[in-house]
Design a protein around this nucleic acid. Sequence first.
RNA 1: CGGGACGUGGCCCAGCUUGGUAGGGCACUUGACUGGGGGUCAAGGGGUCGCGGGUUCAAAUCCCGCCGUCCCGACCA
Length: 569
Amino acid sequence: MRWSQLHIPTLRADPAEAEAASHRLLVRAGFIRQLMAGHYSLLPLGVRVRTKVMNVIREEMNGIGAQEFLLPSMQPAWIWEKSGRLAVMGEEMFRLKDRKGADVVLGMTHEEIFTSLAVELASYRELPQFWYQFQLKFRDEPRPKSGLIRVREFTMKDSYSFDLDEAGQDASFEAHRGAYERIFARLGIPALAVEASSGNMGGTDSIEFMCPSEAGEDLVARCGNCDYAANLEKATSALPPVTDGPGTPEPRQLPTPSVATIDDLVNKHGIAADRQVKTLVQVIDGQLTLVLLRGDHPLADQKLIDATGAAAIRPAQPDEIVAALGASPGSLGAVGVTDLPVIADLALQGRTDMTTGANVDEVHLTGVDIARDITIGQWADLREVRAGEPCPSCGTPLELVQAIEVGHIFKLGRKYTNVLGVTVLGPDGTAIVPIMGCYGIGVERAIAAIAEVHHDDIGLTWPVRVAPAEVTVVLLSVKDGAARAVAEDIYRGLLAGGADALIDDRDERPGVKFRDAELTGIPYRISVGSRDLADGVVEVTERATGEKTRVPVTEVVALVREIIAAKDA
RNA sequence: CGGGACGUGGCCCAGCUUGGUAGGGCACUUGACUGGGGGUCAAGGGGUCGCGGGUUCAAAUCCCGCCGUCCCGACCA
């Protein structure tokens, strides 16, 4: 490809609207352009990177025996109705009507559609099956952001496994975990495999692949000593044991004028936060519920959703709270409450001599024995861990890192095969409902993650395997016919050897060409100019390190092909 | 959906406070010079100042409404 004829609109200045490094550089280097919030056009260089990323994923998926499909993005609403997810997806799903008035949606994911094809599976002999595709997903994000990281329209590689039983499912899951580890390693994404919540997709054994980056939207709790790592919405920690006093035979009222917070109680009455019970009122699928945590522990919303199976939760409004409990936030408690569900965090188990609100404004109760005084309907892990708390596996202080979710694998169970009526006959002739797994990678988000990890202050530094081109031949002395002939020879030699090469044949000054080569992040540059040619050499520059080598013209093609082959292995 | 900011040629921005012929830089076109780190000079082309309404002799500028975009939060595979 000739730079003179490629559309690579590089910008001299950073785009004003871009914050994240990947966003800024992908726009500036001419890989992407925004059409509207959350929708990006990929330009020729962007398409080349996307193709290479997809090919790595495809090779590894095929490597575990997966078969590639291509399913429609536009889908009938009824199939989502049937799985029960039409309501669950809410406003995040794009919906439209066709000319006949039929309800149609744009797919956010393809469990239903793949499962609808699985009804043609007939025998246990066919299982397991691994089915995948690269297809656009549409999600009406409330807030698209950070370039390709959070968008409303994107390519996902999604795969689904169908197995006869749990043991088979486990093997399929492990096959995918292995494939994902190889994929991210080959893409140059230092992904951490972390325990996660499966969110509204439903499922268990959820593992996210997270690329540490300051542009990331998730927080991962990670142990620096062992391999424990979990999304903050799932992470736990080992808390030091707390010894409580015996307390009083029954709770006692404590007048607490102008105390509205945990801190007030600490400061004005000397009651440590970890000896208090924090009472939150949440509306869980419409049901007012008391949520109890230790005074110094924050609630992890997703844990509450997971523990209750809720579709939606929200904090209760002050007027709802007063109507239900007779007191305002600041003096709330669960002692004696039997008409509302009470769910409590595990860290409160066995605690005695605690302090909590009395459900009378400006009055608290001391000497509360949780088991004796509070009717708790459900115990669950609800608290959000904080940096520095001990790792649950080895006790080392946990660190919190920001990360981009680039992949997610989880087990789906038989939800979809049940509702869509998928069965195969077993060896004994009885019908068996296959069990499913689901495995996703966001392709453009992976590109953004690579860019976040592989750049410096002058541009992108793509790994060879996914770079828009492996090497660019930069003709510096445009007017020098001999130099031009050498550059063209080298370019043709590289192409003939199978290298993905570019030649910058534009009538531009050397500085412009150098800047563009660096900005776009082509891993190797061969500079051809009259000056070095006088000595019979050209200059080879490695983009990532800036390392320059003078190489005889006669050897450069073989040398660069060799380097690329080694990096591309 | 709450909070904040912004919207002026392809890109980055000034002008708005105090209303009076729409500007600069980059990019682009042509010519000359130049040629190993975004070069110089000269001459050009390109604008519904986000949209609609209002005030005014007169609106990029003031007022009202709407739309869009970005950031923080809520939310989120």
